[in-house]
Nucleic acid binder design. Structure first.
Lengths: 153, 153
DNA sequence: ATAATAAAAGACCTAAATATCTTTTATTGA
DNA sequence: TCAATAAAAGATATTTAGGTCTTTTATTAT
C-alpha cells in the first residue's frame, strides 16, 4: 500500500508533533531510538520532509526537529505525495492504464469505493489529528521501547 | 497496493477465463501478446498459479492454459494470497506491529474500514464474476492490442 | 521411435527500494 | 576564533521485485 519510507515518515512526524516544540526540539537519534528505526535511513527521510517544508529543522547545538503551527495542520496525503506520489489513489485495481469511468475494467466500480475512501481519509486527516489521539492505551505509545512510555506512567 | 506480479496474475486469469476452454486451451505466447506482458515473466507467474491449482495447464502440442469449472469460482483473494500473501489486509496503516483492536494506533479505526472493505471485496469476487463482466465498452477489452478486440467488432 | 510443441524449471540479470557510512555545512557556546 | 554539536549531503552497500534467457520435461502426431 504505502512504502516503508512513507510509513516511517508518518510515524516520525506524529512522534515529532507529539514530543517536540520550537523551544524543545528533538534530535534524530532520539526519534530513531524511540521509534526503533535505522538512524541514517530516518535521516534521509526527514531530510526530504524538511526540504518540502513539512517539518522544521535546525542544525547545530540545541538543534533538531519540530513542527510549527502550520506544519501540524498538514494532511497525511501531503506526506504520502512527497514520499510515494499519489499514483496509488488513481490507479486501476487491475493495473490497466486505460481504465476510466467511461471504459471501466470489471473491477473498477467496486474497487473505486475503497480506493477513494482511503484518499479522502488521508486528505482530511492532519498530523495534529493523529498526534492528539495518542494516549496511554495506544499502539503508538505501546511501541515506544523506553522513554516516552515511562514518562506517561 | 498489490504487486505487479499479482496484478499480472489477475489479468492473465481473467483473460484465460474469458478466452479458453479445456477443448481450446490458450498458449502463453498469445496471452502475453494480448495482455502486453513479458512472456517469460508471465510464464513464472502462471507456473505458480498452476502449482497452486488456481489454473490448469497441459504441456505439449495443443497444450496451454484453461480454467476448469472449479477454478472459475476461485476468489480473487486466493490469487492475492498466492502471489503476495495476505499481510496487506492485516497490517496497521502506520506499520506498527502491535496495533490491535485493544491497543489501536491513532489511525486504526478509520483505516480499518477501507482495508477490511477491500478484503471483503476480494473475498467475495470470483474470477468468473469479472470474466463475465467483460464486454466491448470495457477497459479490459480496450487494452487488448489486437485479436480479441477485432473479434468483437 | 522420433520430431515438434509447449509448459516447467533453473540460472541469471537489472532496477528500485531499503539501509549504512562518511564528509560537509550550519549553529552555538566557551 | 575554536571546539562541539547536529542536520544535510553524498557515496556506497544490500535486499527484493521485476524481468530475461536457457535447458528440461511432458505430450502429441507422424
Amino acid at each position: 500500500m504505502l512504502s516503508k519510507s512513507c510509513v516511517y515518515a508518518l510515524r516520525a512526524i506524529i512522534f515529532i508533533a507529539h514530543n517536540a516544540r520550537e523551544e524543545a526540539k528533538i534530535g534524530i537519534k532520539e526519534i530513531a531510538q524511540e521509534l526503533d528505526l535505522p538512524v541514517h535511513y530516518l535521516g534521509k527521510i526527514l531530510q526530504q520532509l524538511t526540504k518540502h517544508k513539512i517539518i522544521q529543522s535546525i542544525k547545530g547545538p540545541n538543534g533538531g526537529f519540530y513542527l510549527d503551527r502550520e506544519s501540524k495542520q498538514v494532511r497525511l496525503i501531503k506526506v504520502i505525495e512527497v514520499m510515494d506520489g499519489l499514483d496509488v489513489f488513481f490507479q486501476c485495481g487491475l493495473g490497466l492504464n486505460n481504465c476510466s469511468e467511461e471504459h471501466p475494467c470489471p473491477l473498477h466500480d467496486n474497487f473505486k469505493v475503497y480506493r477513494d475512501g482511503l484518499y479522502t481519509l488521508f486528505s482530511t486527516t492532519s498530523i495534529a489529528d493523529l498526534a492528539n489521539k495518542i494516549d496511554e492505551g495506544n499502539a503508538f505509545i505501546q511501541n515506544f521501547p523506553s522513554k516516552l512510555k515511562d514518562s506517561l506512567k
